[in-house]
Amino acid sequence: MESLTLLVQIFVSAAIINNFVLHYFVGICPFLGVSRRVDMAFGMGCAVTFVISIAALLSWTFTYYLLRPDAPLPAWLWQRAGGDPSVAIDLSVLSYIMYIFVIASSVQFVEMYVRKFAPKLHKSFGVFLPLITTNCAILFACLIILRNLQDPAQLWGPAEALTLALGGGVGFTLAICLMAGIREELELCDVPRPLRGAGITLLVAGILAMAVMGFAGVDQNLQNVIDAFFN
């Protein structure tokens, strides 16, 4: 029950309150670049959600077993190799390199898989897949997972990692689709010439960010409601 509360809180926090785009500013490049039309924005959002979930699960696995300060695998290998068991092995210095390769290869695999088994899906969002490798939102999700695996006092499981990734992906989709909807309307407006393009997009994003700030604190009350419901 307590874990369910935690999951709900992680999801709501990542999707709305601490929205990846509007609160943490990750994934700004596609947010500005691919937000002209709602259908394209939705395709991009789906692609990001898909990749972010796979990358989060993979990086959780690598971090838990390999990279965190007292991970089991390197310690076991070290002892098999005859090393002193009291020496702590910390491979976390390799985590950034590991994550970027996990992201790059999961993008590759998703692209291959989708092209082969779901050509229709590939047609709708396949073009965005190569762009996603340099999307900061995915690396950001991996980094949050790393932060929550470093302290043995509150170790995240795969469920928490996946929930964070899904929440982040949904939040990204929400933000980029809202933006695209507004920009479709803006096409019909007489925007001052210097503001056209990125300028007005950023101003609109600022207003959206203000709107999202209004949700702050909602997760607490949600937690209270869930607690009250189960007790």
């Binding site: 809180q9 926090s13 309150i17 601490n18 006092a153 509150q154 702050a216 997760d219 607490q220 937690q223």
Partner: peptide, 10 residues
């Protein structure tokens, strides 16, 4: 005791 949890923003 060290402790952490959700606040208003983070």
């Amino acid at each position: 005791l060290p402790a952490s949890g959700p606040g208003f923003a983070d």
